[in-house]
């Protein structure tokens, strides 16, 4: 397993395409936690996040032969994850979402948050899902606008607009001046 850990994503994808399970193992270890965190942040359910993370990697393996080493595999991972989340949120009725959200919120620990960070978090939490996802992908996952556009299946202009909207909403809700 040793040489693989130094492989770039592209080299790993090439090996995975050739059904190399050790390369897939390294790839799994590399992205398990980021994907899990992303999914947990969207669903606020450790169980759902855990199941979906497995689902994301299973799909990668099942479609390994169609992977394109020229494209960002990381963006592809998030794209699968993002679509799982969208389907999940659609399926749940608004009533259910409300209850779940409230029960889950209690389990989230904000101990390390300052007051301002807490306020900012509350505003982000009120964003619509598309605005929230786009903002978080830029801010926390460090994706480029072009990548976010591809993951979410929207135009780059839409990404620009949503992130700018997110910051404007924060200013409106939090500004004292």
């Amino acid at each position: 397993m040793k040489p693989y850990t130094r492989f770039s994503d592209r080299e790993l994808v090439e090996a995975i395409r050739a059904s190399d399970s050790e390369a897939f193992h390294v790839f799994y270890l590399r992205y398990y936690e980021p994907i899990y965190r992303f999914l947990w942040y969207r669903t606020h359910s450790t169980e759902t996040a855990g199941d979906f993370t497995q689902e994301v990697f299973m799909r990668i393996w099942e479609k390994r032969e169609t992977l394109d080493p020229q494209k960002s595999i990381r963006a592809y991972l998030y794209r699968i994850a993002y679509h799982l989340v969208i389907d999940y949120l659609k399926k749940r009725s608004s009533h259910e979402t409300f209850i779940q959200k409230n029960t889950h919120q209690r389990n989230i620990s904000f101990e390390a948050f300052s007051d301002l960070q807490m306020d900012v978090y509350r505003v982000i939490d009120q964003f619509s899902e598309p605005v929230k996802t786009v903002f978080c992908m830029s801010r926390f996952e460090g994706f480029k606008y072009s990548e976010i556009a591809e993951i979410c299946g929207v135009s780059v202009k839409t990404v620009e607009f949503r992130i700018s909207k997110a910051l404007e909403l924060m200013r409106k809700k939090l500004s004292h001046g």
Binding site: Y36, R37, W40, Y41, T46, A49, N107, I108, S109, F110, A112, F113, S114, L116, Q117, V120, Y121, I124, F135, C136, R139, F140, L167, M170, R171, L174
Partner: peptide
């Protein structure tokens, strides 16, 4: 606001 936005840790 950008800098102070954070994600909580999953439990």
């Amino acid at each position: 606001y950008w800098e102070q936005s954070r994600q909580p840790e999953p439990p």
